[in-house]
Design a binder for these strands. Structure first.
Lengths: 230, 230
DNA sequence: CTGCACAATGATGTGCACAACACAACGAAG
DNA sequence: CTTCGTTGTGTTGTGCACATCATTGTGCAG
């Protein structure tokens, strides 16, 4: 998780995690939009390594459904069909609710501070909407929510599906800047409501709220796609 | 989408899938028991390729939680702690039930035939219990059940968790040969009950039966481990 | 002008040699 | 006899050169 806790151990595994996390974040935050071709050589040069260790990372990301390599053509960021996206969202709904049932734990002091900071960032974003900041905050908040369950396999799967789908949703949000303010507003309410539920200690309610917002986000995306389509 | 429709294209991707599937099956069927060290060189020689493409497969399997490579030491088949195994099983229970809710479809003619064949194999196994055959049948039956839902992400996750956990359960079953006959008997009833539910067209009931059996399997494993532990 | 064969280009995939690393066996100092 | 340093051996990780593949541009025939 926090690979930067140790000062610096240039071991193989640390480099792998660094590169993996970096590229994955870039994909999720649309630095590499769906369909973008990634240059192995350029990335290898950026990280100061050869193609070999970099390809290791790409293979892993391909296994996570974020990349797709084709011999002789290139390595591309995957795009997700609406039909498959709908299936994934349906699954995410159920998994989000499961988060509140399987190994749910009330946040500790440290996590509380994290949530407070996230809430502050949300409030700040309300007054000055920014696409990039919104994407980052959304991701950080989701990762923080994942810490509410101790069921690691469930966390891994939720995280995996998040990185798989949220970027598609973000793409549609970024497509029409008019809706960004609305999305930020809705998101702030989600943060507010979930924190409220957590304060009461009702983890199941928090999960249900999250589920509801995931569902509504997808619905808004479908509607928005229908409107802003060329 | 369906790369296996063409008769045979000895392309890179096909070789990758072949090696991946082969090694994964061996791990699940305990040909490579947890803790076993895999020789990259030997495997590469077996498949008639260099270490490079083979390592690609190993990296993928490591991402699926089946292998674990350590620099300078070796590549080992992962073992799963009881605590994590319990979490995974808890999750599998919920996912099994979801299978009956998300995109559940009644089996087609082809799938019916498959189920009939599986039932026959189960009956045959009843009269002549065999560890290896049991492991294979268990896997084939699970894969067949997965075809009852059209939700691909859910299928992928269930399959992934199956390969992750069932081998641990099988290990405990194989540890005490006395229980093998009982397990085969229980399994045959599971097949029978699920097929019965499918014939009626009640997919949710089939999923619930499966869920119950997964739960009971884990419980028996815990008890059995307590008894046969040295 | 159109259509096709073909070479040129650039991408990923592969093979091989070597570096980095962990562990074990060994031996000398205490 | 114990203990620590050292070396040997086998493993995974890395870098590089080349093979293989798909695309594209080009030139010639129609």
């Amino acid at each position: 998780m926090n690979t930067e806790s140790r000062d610096f151990t240039p071991s193989a595994r640390d480099r792998f995690d660094r590169m993996h996390s970096t590229i994955r974040t870039r994909i999720c935050l649309l630095d590499y939009a769906p369909g973008t071709r990634l240059s192995e050589e350029a990335l290898a040069a950026e990280f100061g390594v050869s193609r070999t260790p970099l390809r290791r990372v790409l293979v892993r990301l391909e296994g996570e459904g974020l990349l797709h390599s084709v011999h002789g053509v290139g390595t591309f960021v995957t795009d997700v069909e609406i039909s498959e996206l709908a299936q994934t969202y349906q699954l995410r709904l159920e998994l989000a609710e499961l988060t509140g049932k399987l190994g749910a734990v009330t946040p500790k002091e440290e996590l509380w501070g994290e949530f407070k900071a996230l809430s502050a960032r949300s409030k700040a974003l309300l007054k000055a909407p920014d696409a990039r900041r919104f994407a980052e905050l959304n991701m950080d908040f989701f990762i923080a929510l994942l810490k509410l369950t101790t069921n690691e396999p469930l966390r891994d799967i939720c995280e995996r599906l998040y990185f798989q789908t949220t970027r598609i949703w973000l793409k549609s949000v970024f497509a029409s800047k008019i809706d960004l303010a609305d999305e930020v507003d809705v998101f702030d309410r989600e943060v507010h409501d979930i924190l409220r539920a957590l304060e009461v200690g009702d983890l199941h309610a928090a999960a249900l709220i999250q589920r509801a917002h995931i569902s509504m986000s997808f619905t808004r995306m479908l509607n928005g796609a229908g409107r802003s389509a060329p």
